[in-house]
Structure formats: structure tokens, C-alpha cells
């Protein structure tokens, strides 16, 4: 199952306030509190059961650093 959308983190806006890391299981938190996408990068593939959580994360991000965009094809 390949995700068709991804949660994109705009690192120029992110201040590591941690809301998204509470809402999405796939997001960890690095030692400075910033979200950590498994495998690195700025896009977290959204799995089907995470669609609502991803929408909530976009709506609740206090600095509007999150957006949903089409997932890039995997290599």
C-alpha cells in the first residue's frame, strides 16, 4: 500500500512545538523537539488510517508549517 499524499513540513516555519508529533504516530521528535520523519526528509507519507490525524495536524499547527501534498513516487 503506497500512500498517495504526504504531510509536508516547511522547515523555515517549524518551531518544534510538538503538536503534530502527538497527532501522528509516524512522527518522532528529535532531541531539540522538532518533528522527525522516519528515514529523514520533509514529507511523511500519510497512511489511510492517518488521513484525519494529518488534517488535524495541518489545522492545529500553531505556526502553519504543515501542508498536505501529493506523495512523491518512491524509488
Amino acid at each position: 500500500m503506497s500512500a498517495s499524499t504526504a504531510l509536508h513540513i516547511d522547515w523555515t516555519r517549524c518551531r518544534g512545538r510538538g503538536m503534530c508529533t502527538e497527532l501522528l504516530t509516524g512522527l518522532g521528535r528529535d532531541e531539540w523537539g522538532y518533528p522527525l520523519v522516519a528515514g529523514g526528509g520533509s514529507d511523511l507519507p500519510i497512511r489511510t488510517h492517518d488521513v484525519e490525524a494529518a488534517d488535524d495536524a495541518v489545522a492545529l499547527c500553531p505556526v502553519l508549517a504543515l501542508s498536505i501534498r501529493p506523495a512523491r513516487p518512491t524509488r
Partner: peptide, 17 residues
């Protein structure tokens, strides 16, 4: 909310909401 801290058992997004 601005501090980014949870409130005892209430998570950060709960404080925001």
C-alpha cells in the same frame, strides 16, 4: 500553548483546543 508544554495529562494539542 505558546510555551509548547502539555498540562499534566492534557497533551499539547489538547491545551491548544
Amino acid at each position: 500553548t505558546r510555551s509548547g508544554r502539555p498540562l499534566v495529562r492534557l497533551p499539547r494539542f489538547g491545551v491548544l483546543l
